[in-house]
C-alpha cells in the first residue's frame, strides 16, 4: 500500500491518509505529558511537519513493522524538536528550567530522547533490528525470518548496534564534560 501510495494510486493514498490518523493521536498523547503541553496551533504545526517527514521517508518503509509503529518514531522526534524549539525561544522558560529543573509531569517525556536520536544515527538495517527486538519484542529467529537473514547475522548486527549507541553516548558525555 505504501509503495502504491508513492506511485500515486488514489485508493492507496486514501488508505494511507486514513492510517495516518494515528499521527495526531500519538502526538496528542505524548503532548499531554509535556508540562506545559504545546498549544493547539503549535501541535497542529507538529502534525503537519510529522506527516510531511513521514511522506518524504515513506520510500524507506520496508513493511516489517506496522505503519503506525513506523510513524511513531517520526512523531517522537518531531515533538521533541518542537518542544526544544519552544524551550530555546523563551529566555524566561530557560531561566525557570535552570531554577526548577526540567519540567516534567508523572514521567519524563524526554526520558528516551537520546535513545531515539541515537537510533536515528544508526544504519537503517541496524536500527531496524534493535527496534524489532525491543519495540516489537521479536526474537532473533523471528527477526531473521522477517528480514530473510540468519539469526546469527541478526544477533551480530544487534550487538554491533548496542555498541554503537554506547559509543555515541560516550561521545556525548565526553562533549558535555
Amino acid at each position: 500500500m505504501a509503495q502504491r501510495a508513492i506511485a500515486g494510486d488514489p485508493v492507496a493514498r486514501r488508505q494511507f491518509a486514513q492510517r495516518m490518523q494515528c499521527v495526531p493521536g500519538i502526538l496528542a498523547a505524548r503532548n499531554s505529558r509535556l508540562m506545559p503541553p504545546l498549544g493547539r496551533e503549535e501541535i497542529d504545526d507538529v502534525v503537519q511537519d510529522t506527516l510531511v517527514a513521514i511522506w518524504n521517508k515513506l520510500h524507506a518503509y520496508a513493511g516489517q513493522a506496522t505503519l503506525e509503529s513506523w510513524a511513531y518514531r517520526f512523531c517522537v522526534l518531531e515533538l521533541m524538536a518542537a518542544a526544544r524549539r519552544r524551550r530555546r525561544s523563551s529566555t524566561e522558560d530557560q531561566e525557570t528550567l535552570l531554577r526548577e529543573g526540567p519540567a516534567i509531569q508523572d514521567a519524563n517525556p524526554f526520558a528516551y530522547e537520546d535513545l531515539h536520536l541515537a537510533l536515528e544515527d544508526l544504519s537503517a538495517g541496524t536500527a531496524e533490528v534493535l527496534r524489532m527486538k525491543h519495540f516489537d519484542q521479536l526474537t532473533f529467529e523471528e527477526i531473521g525470518d522477517a528480514l530473510g537473514e540468519s539469526a546469527n547475522t541478526i544477533k551480530s548486527r544487534y550487538y554491533r548496534g548496542l555498541a554503537q549507541i554506547r559509543a555515541s553516548f560516550d561521545d556525548t558525555a565526553g562533549d558535555a564534560s
Binding site: A17, Q18, Q21, V23, V47, L51, S69, Y72, A111, K133
Partner: peptide, 29 residues
C-alpha cells in the same frame, strides 16, 4: 530500549479511531 518500546506499545494501544484526526491527516497529505 525496553522502556522506550513499552512506551510506544502503550501509546499505540490507547489510540482510538478518530474521524477528526483522519480528516486532519487527509487534509495535510
Amino acid at each position: 530500549l525496553n522502556g522506550a518500546g513499552e512506551e510506544q506499545r502503550q501509546t499505540l494501544q490507547q489510540l482510538a479511531s478518530d474521524p477528526a484526526a483522519a480528516r486532519q491527516s487527509t487534509r495535510v497529505l
